[in-house]
């Protein structure tokens, strides 16, 4: 303990490869807890975005992060991860199983809660916006007409891709491709304005 005040503890760089973090965790000792922190810091955002994409809910994604990190750390401590050079694949695999379990559990929960929903979320005013509203509005206003229509019809008028295609005299495939492009541009506009 006293030694720690005399000799600087070795730092765990964010740049260390996954396999080195895994080795330090498996070996235990003074470096293990810092290696665990670094590993959590590295993988938590990846698990979270995976969770948001597949589970469509912020609390469910947060749960997924916890569950996956605990499982991965336990496996690393026990030395049961065979190929630590490909730790990302192991984390992703764990993530897929955990998300599948969570989806099944949520399906059961939803069945219980069916009919108890009082108010659709989209009719409530936003309490706290994740993106600056004025910035997003400005970026939306700068879109060319057709792009703006695609965004509006998709997100604000709840139209299906086929309906949008018919309205704009495009194919459904075209609408999807255009929607990917316009959202990518919108993202860059919002992020650019933030920078």
């Amino acid at each position: 303990m006293a030694l720690a005040f005399v000799l600087p503890l070795p730092t765990v760089s964010d740049e260390l490869p996954d396999s080195e973090l895994a080795r330090r965790i498996r070996d235990g000792g003074a470096e293990a807890s810092r290696a665990e922190s670094a590993l959590c810091k590295r993988f938590a955002p990846r698990i979270r975005v995976y969770g948001l994409r597949h589970l469509k809910s912020e609390p469910a994604a947060a749960d997924l992060v916890q569950v996956v990190l605990v499982r991965v750390l336990e496996a690393l401590r026990a030395g049961s991860v065979e190929n630590t050079a490909n730790l990302a694949a192991y984390v992703l695999g764990t993530c897929r199983y955990a998300a599948f379990d969570q989806q099944r559990a949520e399906k059961r929960q939803r069945a219980i809660e069916a009919g108890a929903s009082l108010l659709a979320e989209d009719v409530l005013p936003p309490a706290a916006s994740a993106i600056d509203f004025r910035r997003l509005f400005g970026c939306l206003q700068r879109l060319p007409d057709r792009d703006s229509q695609i965004v509006r019809m998709t997100f604000l008028e709840d139209r299906t891709t086929d309906e949008i295609a018919e309205r704009l005299k495009l194919t459904a495939g075209n609408v999807r491709v255009l929607r990917h492009r316009v959202l990518a541009r919108l993202y860059q506009c919002v992020e650019g304005a933030r920078a």
Binding site: Y50, L52, A88, E121, D122, S129, F155, L156, E191
Partner: peptide, 30 residues
């Protein structure tokens, strides 16, 4: 894509930003 996501911090940040934007648009009132 998901394999790449788990290996790349830059793409993770990008995917997070896009997911945030889509969620915001889905929650917007016209």
């Amino acid at each position: 894509l998901e394999s790449h996501l788990f290996e790349c911090a830059v793409c993770t940040a990008r995917a997070e930003g896009i997911e945030r934007l889509v969620r915001e648009l889905n929650g917007m009132m016209p």
